Simulated assay, not measured.
Amino acid sequence: MPLTDLIRYFNVADTTGESTLYLDGPRAAAWHHGYRLSSLFQPIVDLRQERVVGHQAHLLVRREDGRAISAAEVYAACETPASVIHLDRLCRTLHALNFLAQQQVAGGYLQMAVHPRHLLAVQNQHGLVYEAILKRCGLAPEDIVLQINTTACGERTRLTNALTSYRQRGYRLALSGPLPAETLLALAPDIVQRDSVEARHSLPSAQPAGILLELTGIDSGRQYEQACAAGVDLGQGSLFGSPEPDCRPTHGKRRLAYNHASPFGAPHENRQ
């Protein structure tokens, strides 16, 4: 479905009257309570194979006067659980639309954050509504890595139930936060995210099979070498590219993938 049709569909489906998606050049953007929301994408690199395998979505927020502000300020303005759920789904819908708009040259997976307040506000069936949104966009939970900071996610049982629901629907999970290493790994994420090589050493040298380590903030060749030496699997940072409206190409326009491997062990099938 063309991007314009998808924007029209989601605007009609949104009965809250709080937000409006609109076409901004070749991309989607949104108005939400006087804020202009748009997407930025930062490449995620498989350090072993030196290839882009996914993109981290970032939210760019501007006031009506054009001044950029932090995404945290927009979330802080949400006064009710329902408003947090609405905003968080709006942001992830926006990212999905802008990722979809680049499928001609951008493959791999889309990694994006779930706000801790959203996770706590949803009582059950986590990921169900967003799965329907993804399907409307021609995507699936298997295309998505949900990034969750465990710092503010409440009691362990609540977090475990949410993760179980996401996993049952096919989403991949990337966890970060100060939980003890054993506790974090017991939650069985697909990815453990750390922000420094030193933090990597808080994890066991032998991780459970299938769990990948992702390091953010790789901004220099020296940091890259340290990450490789420490056994880091995936990396983000300005060395590979800063957040931009356009994804880093992962295949040619003739659908010939030159970054074809998935970090999860299966080849990525390019959609026609």
Rank of each mutant, 00 (worst) to 15 (best):
C153Q: 06
A152K: 11
A199I: 01
I211W: 03
T160D: 10
L175D: 03
H118P: 04
T157S: 13
L212W: 01
A174E: 06
T183Q: 15
A186T: 05
V122F: 02
E214A: 15
T164P: 00
S202W: 07
E142A: 14
L163E: 02
L120T: 07
A162Y: 09
S220C: 07
I148N: 02
E182G: 01
L185H: 06
T164Y: 12
E214W: 05
L212D: 03
R167D: 05
V145N: 04
P204D: 09
V192G: 01
R136I: 09
T151R: 15
G127P: 09
E214I: 00
I133S: 05
R172F: 06
D143T: 02
G177I: 04
K135P: 01
E225K: 12
T150Y: 05
R167Q: 13
D195K: 11
V114D: 04
T216A: 13
Q168M: 11
E198T: 14
Y166T: 01
A140S: 15
A206Y: 04
Y166N: 02
L139P: 07
T183L: 12
R194W: 04
E214L: 15
A121W: 10
G170R: 05
A209F: 07
D143W: 00
A174D: 03
H126I: 12
E214T: 04
I144E: 04
G154C: 11
A181P: 00
E198Y: 09
T150R: 02
H115M: 08
V129W: 13
P189A: 06
A181H: 01
S220T: 15
D219S: 14
L146F: 06
S205G: 12
L163I: 04
T151W: 04
L159P: 02
L187C: 08
Q123L: 14
E225M: 13
P208H: 06
Y166R: 06
G210Q: 10
Q147L: 13
L187V: 05
I133L: 07
G154W: 10
Y224I: 02
Y224T: 00
E182P: 00
Q207E: 06
A121Q: 11
R158M: 09
E142L: 08
L203A: 11
Y171I: 01
P208F: 07
Y224L: 15
L163W: 00
G221F: 10
A121K: 12
I218R: 08
G170T: 07
A140K: 11
V192I: 14
A206P: 00
Y171N: 00
I218E: 08
G210A: 11
S196G: 11
A174L: 12
P208K: 07
Y171W: 03
R169K: 12
D219T: 14
D190W: 00
A162L: 10
G138S: 09
L184H: 03
V114E: 08
L173K: 01
R194Q: 14
Y224V: 03
P189S: 08
A162P: 07
P208I: 06
P204F: 07
Q147A: 15
L179S: 02
I148T: 05
L203T: 10
A206E: 14
V122H: 03
D219G: 12
